[in-house]
Design a protein around this nucleic acid. Sequence first.
DNA 1: TCAGTTTTCTACGCTTCGTAGAACTGTAAC
DNA 2: GTTACAGTTCTACGAAGCGTAGAAAACTGA
Lengths: 127, 127
Amino acid sequence: MASLGELERAVMDLLWAGQEAATANTLRDQLARTSATQDGPGHEGKELAVTTVLTVLSRLEKKGLVERERGTRPHRYQAVSSRADHTAELMHEVLGSAPDREAVLARFIGSVSEGEAETLRKLLGHL
Amino acid sequence: MASLGELERAVMDLLWAGQEAATANTLRDQLARTSATQDGPGHEGKELAVTTVLTVLSRLEKKGLVERERGTRPHRYQAVSSRADHTAELMHEVLGSAPDREAVLARFIGSVSEGEAETLRKLLGHL
DNA sequence: TCAGTTTTCTACGCTTCGTAGAACTGTAAC
DNA sequence: GTTACAGTTCTACGAAGCGTAGAAAACTGA
């Protein structure tokens, strides 16, 4: 249950980018703005209904990616884990499903940039 | 377009396991047998229709995971790349979607077993 | 209590996947 | 070369996931 839809991902990106918990309305506005800027001029930002955003947030909550404060009246939503954590977890998930983990790691390392290889060496150094 | 359904995955597992190209019928039989043994006794193997297997193979072909020899009359199907290659590619895909690649790698390395860390060190050594 | 805001319920259309019948096609034997 | 059969493609349906949002319910401030 790892894959996200397009809008779900867009919402997660916003939650991961912002450091504070956000309300559905805030997110709705940000979605309008970001899609307007990123998709270039002429492609006006999607004016989503707030209910749409709320539905998506509920689904993300059910998936365990988002948690909400139910106390405050406009509920505030935030990502459960950082994007980096989440992505790393995904990578482990992908890797975990393989019986030949070492072979996978070999292939993986084989196609990593030199800069990243260096990063990895450093990270592995102090273990 | 990375995720596979349950049956699609089962078929890929068979294609990855066998070294030779297989026909739809062969796969149908293997599916019946493997699900019988793996799921324990009492759970009889799924007797799928051959058309079902063919449909799945077509879909896998469209996804670029499988290729078939159209020359021979019972078409023969085989995985385009090894499971290890495929999995490693998936990992790169997951990683590639992140703007903070180094942070992801750090988290990833952080939760790798010591044995695998050793493997990684060796792999990174001779680059 | 009332009006406005926020959340939940319900729903519809689209796509993917498991599943397979129906129809078509190639092949081998007669 | 016509026929019978194995193999392949076409078409389709039901379930689930996702984008989308209206309608209804719940809440809050006045």
